[in-house]
Design a protein around this nucleic acid. Sequence first.
RNA 1: GGGCGCGUAGCUCAGGGGUAGAGCGUCGCCCUUACAAGGCGAAUGUCGGCGGUUCGAAACCGUCCGCGCCCACCA
Length: 875
Amino acid sequence: MTENTQHQNSSVPEPELPKTYAPAEVEGPLYERWVDRGYFAADAKSEKSPYTVVIPPPNVTGSLHLGHAFEHTLIDALTRRKRMQGYETLWQPGMDHAGIATQNVVERELAKEGKSRHDLGREAFVERVWQWKGESGGQISGQMRRLGDGVDWERERFTMDEGLSQAVKTLFKKLYDDELIYRAERIINWCPRCLTAISDIEVEYQDDDGELVSLKYGDGDETVVVATTRAETMLGDTAIAVHPDDERYKHLVGKLIKLPLTDRSIPVVADEHVDPEFGTGCVKVTPAHDPNDFEIGQRHNLPNIAVMDEHAVITAHGPFQGLDRLEARSAIVAALRAEGRIVAEKRPYTHSVGHCSRCKTTIEPRLSMQWWVKVGPLAKAAGDAVRDGQVKIHPQEMEKRYFDWVDNLHDWCISRQLWWGHRIPVWYGPNGEVVCVGPDDEEPTGEGWTQDSDVLDTWFSSGLWPFSTLGWPEQTESLEKFYPNSVLVTGYDILFFWVARMMMFGLYAMDGTPPFHTIVLHGMVRDQFGKKMSKSFGNAVNPLDWMDKYGSDALRFTLARGANPGVDVPIGEDWVQGSRNFANKIWNATRFALMNGATVEGELPPAERLSATDRWILSRLNSVVAEVDAYYEDYQFAKLSDALFHFAWDEVFDWYVELTKTTFQEGGQAAEDTKRVLGEVLDVTLKLLHPVVPFVTETLWTTLTGNESLVIAEWPKDSTFRDEAAEREIETLQQVITEVRRFRSDQGLQPGQKVPARLTLDGTALAPHEAAIRQLLRLQPEGEGFAATATLPVSGATVALDLSGTIDVAAERKRLAKDLAAAEKEITAANAKLTNEAFLAKAPDHVVDKIRGRLTKAEADIERIKGQLDALPAA
RNA sequence: GGGCGCGUAGCUCAGGGGUAGAGCGUCGCCCUUACAAGGCGAAUGUCGGCGGUUCGAAACCGUCCGCGCCCACCA
């Protein structure tokens, strides 16, 4: 880009900044400029130390919600700071194909046209999904640009793209060859609507009302009563189970019992699984439709009789054939009742029922041939990496959850009966051959060979994300440079789905190197009342709406400021407004500085020459640099944002800027020095703020310094300059001003009203600040006929005001009396402590000193207040 | 049934053995030459209840009450 076009495209206003910050005009062009200049591109050949964060890939099917905006703000802040610190920084972007979710969305689209995916056929359907992905994915990257996400767009990846598909095949093959992937027939969680198996964590349990009925099985002397909430499965019962030690039923074990409504008889078996205390102590066993029953069946060699098809419709011959599971349930209960076999009913009976996390349909446990990952060794390694301290989880409380999960994990069902996803790379031959095809292998051709029709769980490919995005299995420069990732930032809600899987696959595929060293788990975004955001509840917000209204910086700052570790983040529009106000405040403070000749040119003046005011703000500035750094290292986004907010607004923009006005008016060397200090303070403050509010700071900083961009500016270092004396001096100054302001306000004086005053500051720390005090308090020279009607002693100095007899003595007495009482109470409390020997003996010195200091201050306050009372004219 | 966490100002939340904090909201005065998206000033809490430890508890311990989340093969 030439100088000329750069200037034309520049959205950065010339030094004449408008009165109000208008984010909409600035943000878009700024972002594109950052990208065009390649600031976010990560160079694998760089000599710099790497800093890598992968985006938790959003589902390609959606658009970003506030939760994404939150997560991206945190990642962007982290990576922007590291970039400024001189790291070769990669924020890896991309999206997830989100198998079942995306397939469902596209199927719904098709349904609107009155079609099903079967009308299109597999190939055409998948083509259709790709088409959908094109549209939807564009929306997401558009939102990310609006947010200001500093990702390396050149490296954008998609879990279904060619390279990542190769990675998936490679890992599958490796796991298969290591016998960590196998195929087996088991009870799986089946969604009768999505028509696929899903894994254990894709099942959401909730308490549903059901009906517990007790059924009498058998005839004559040999009867048992079993309780069930799923009467329809009785058609598939193949045993009755009792506890081996249950005396009541010992005589029945091994006997056959007549199964009602059928012509079958089923054995009574003894199994430890049965709880003799529950119900009658007898359990009906339906191995084909219940995971526990399946286990019992395995132990006792029971047959599996499936009585339902994939739609959960009864297939068993007889009167119930063709009914779905709920219809069948009531029909069967009715039929049993007619036979007098219902001995008890309990309704409603609340029990936990599994639902498909995608469509909320009740899960049907189903016996089915599926592919599994044997998680034992993988999960062990994933747990150990955290136990060893190789990988740290923030906040630490989350480690417990992590361990509970990885230490008690069942094998992972990875096959899905879907069309959208990575097809399982296994081929079956005409003579029963099974061949797992690796990425470099030829696919078998010829008569009778077919590929497995299932696809992989979407989390299989996202489990490879930290290295597949870097080119694995190829040994690329990027992989070498940017693996392992530095930190993972994601929500605690996908700790198991995603984080644990990345840990397992990363450690396995990358020879024991964990995918990242730190896991930062953030909370969920909620509305301003702490309620979960959801479309159906009507409180969901499109981040674009708020960005349009208040600017991206405002949204980002609000989110960052709410980011306490691992805790949910409430957000309301009012709060975003508040952050917009902050951005505008930054804008105007910088505008003031520019109008008054603040500069970053040249060395800072030597401390000896600077006023206490300048030394104070520089001292505070350095403290804040140190504070912000410490918070970043601990991922305390709320703390660092809050610290910056208060430092910038309260200390710099209010006190310091106000104090510089007097200096600038007076001119001379002091004013020149202050211009430089003000420039310095803004320079550093804008840098500190930039990772969180990149747009407004970039605009202002480039104007202030004339430099190219804050994105590539150097992160501030604590120069270690501190001046506690100056800090105390300015504190005293603030006290005086606040005290007199309060008096003025209590007296009903208008803020602008000038009051004649006599200041007695000699011998106090306030002596050099007379001009500032007069300016900030609107105090006139005493002039002719000055008569002090109120004298305020503060910190050894006095401020005498001539209110020309208009003083409200009663109001002032009342207020002073209140203050006096408070101070006396303080003295009593402090004295009680200081005469308490146990306290003096045991309390640490700094606490005792603090109490002494408090006593001294209270005594001084009393003196001051008494002085003020004495100075009041009689009523 | 296990585990984790929370109850602090009207709302949302920090804090965490040594004088109760922030943002927003509220009240009063003011368009003071950076900013009314602003300035200045003010009010507001038995820190869920009860016990205990301690010189000192909102903070630590116990217990109770209320709330949230995670895990679990209670038929």
